[in-house]
Every structure is written in C-alpha cells, then in structure tokens.
Amino acid sequence: MFFRMVEKDQIADLVRGLASEYEVVGPVEKQGRFVFAPVTGAEELRLDYDTTLLPPKRWFFPPEETIMRFRTADEEVTDDEVFAPPRVLFGLHPCDINALLLMDNVFTRDYVDPYYKARRDNTLVVGVSCTPSDTCFCNVWDTDEVHWGFDVFLTDLGDRYYASLRTVKGAELLDDYVKSSEVTEEDTAEFQRVVGEFKQAFDNDVDTTQLPVLLDAKFDSPIWDEFGEQCLSCGACSMVCPTCYCFDVTDRLAPDQKSGRRVRTWDSCQFKEFAAVAHGQNFREGRASRVKYRYYHKQWGYLSKFERVLCVGCGRCARACPSDISPVRVIEALQTGGVR
C-alpha cells in the first residue's frame, strides 16, 4: 500500500472534486443522530460521527429494488438492467468496510449477484478512522482495522490525515483533487501512536473462546428460551445490521395485469414466516428458535463457509433492539450459562 499526508482543510477540495464526477454519499447529522446521505459539499459531512442509524449496505443492496420487469403473456423478462450510478461512499468506518467484505463473499462469489456487483464495482469507498462509542465491540472480531475493500482510508492525526491508498483509482483521486505530501518517518510514528491509543480506548471485554463449540454444545440451552421470551420478532436487528443480507422476492403486477416487476426487499430471519414452506410447515416457528438461528448463523454458519464471523461489532443491533438483546449479552450468556 502507498501512503500520503493530507491536510484536513483539503477535504473540502476533495469532496468538491469528487462531486463533479460522482454522487457523494457520506455521514450527515439528522435529528441528533447520523445517517449516510448524498452531499454536495464537505460542510455537510460529519466525519466525527459515532455510528449511523442504518449501515451503508443500502447503497449496494437497497431495502427495495426492482430486479426485473416482465410481461406475463409469454413469461419474458423485458428489462433486468441494473441502475448503478458512479458513487463515492465517503467516511466509512473500518467496521462498515469490513462488513462490505463479508457481503462481497455472499454476493460476488458463486452465482454472482449482478445487482450488488454492479454497484460495488461502480462505487468508490473512502474510509475514515473513528473513536469507539459505548456500543462498539469491533475489537472483539478484529474488525477495528481494515486493509482492503476501500480505495482510500483516512486516519485522523488531528490536523492532518494519514491516507492509505489501496487502489489506482484512490491514488488518482488524491492526485487530481488535493495537494498531498510524502509520508515521513515521523508521520508513521504519529500514525502508530494514534492507532495505539484507539486500540486502548475499547473498554469491553467479550470472551469469544470456542464460540462455535458452545453454539453446538449448548444448542438446547435454556438461555435461548429466555432470549426468545424477550425478543419481539421486530427484525430491527437485521435491518440495521451491516452484514445481514437475507431478502425476500415478490412480484408486483401493473394495474393492467399484463406486465409487472419482480422486487426484492430486505427480510429478516426473525420474522415468523421466514422459514415456513408452502403447506404449513414452519421450521422456526418459535421466537427462541429464530433468535438462536440468527446468532448460530452469524457466529458459526457463516464462519464455517468463509472463515470469518458475520458480525463486525458495530453495535447497531444493540442500539436498535427494544429488548436490549445484543451480541455481547448473547455471547456472555453462552459462556456463563446465564442471561444477564
């Protein structure tokens, strides 16, 4: 990787330059919280944000999208083109970039998903360093660092950014729009100091020892009934999760019934009908079985396929859950045998 130093006051130029070629999406403030939204200038960006309400996955995998248009008379697809405008996601934290890498495993490997892939290909990612908030636990999964999946990553050194250039495109952007300078040994030493402080700032301590074994060995543990009792099956955890990729597909007919759209929407394994089949059998009828499945899949099912857990410790689910169910609580219950 190559590195450059960028003065903070150059960010305005960078965003202005990017906006001339791309749609720029970044963290903006909304009623005291933060969301990713299109911006026209750096003054709208809040690069000091803690976390956003919704993860950036919607820019690759929208909550609802038409995957094809059809004609009913002859069952022909009339259009399945993907709308993927050139876009920059500006200011993603390491957890969210890591989440994209986990999504990439699902959508860009076997049976490439053309919709996700087109947007991923047409989107540049500019990452920015962060400070841990009280619900963050990315340190637990080593997702507090990210080394690929972005074009440029900006580590905040106070009045300057230590910019890691991962791709040719990323390097070109800096060349084109900002004055950057060579990285000195002192700069790298400062980078190390800042990153070291960041690592020290996490105060949670989650014991993930032998988690896959515990998930199997304690599959019938009463802790799941307790979490099942608390869970409202609202699915908020899935919607705010940067790594939840499950979806539903429905057909919507035009009023004339002759044509229509096949639409996919975000879905959640916490919804009652999620695992139901046609003639009434539901493989995860009870809430306990659904809560358990979510964690089982994230911490073991996905791991068994892609060698990473399907969680980046962003803490959004912990914030969103009306019953305060969180990965930290669930893992602790698995370790201790009791729900706290």
């Binding site: 979806f247 394994c269 899949h297 073991w300 099912g301």
Partner: peptide, 24 residues
Amino acid sequence: FERRMKCGIGKCGHCGVGHQYTCV
C-alpha cells in the same frame, strides 16, 4: 430436505438449516 429455497443460489437466507443452506 424440503426448505424454503427462495433464490436457489445461497443468498436470500430462507433455506438455512444449521450452518448450511439447503439450496447450495
């Protein structure tokens, strides 16, 4: 096994059983 294989290609998640997807 019969499960709710909605996409058929290991993405939509509906046919998950244990740590596997029934469809793939």
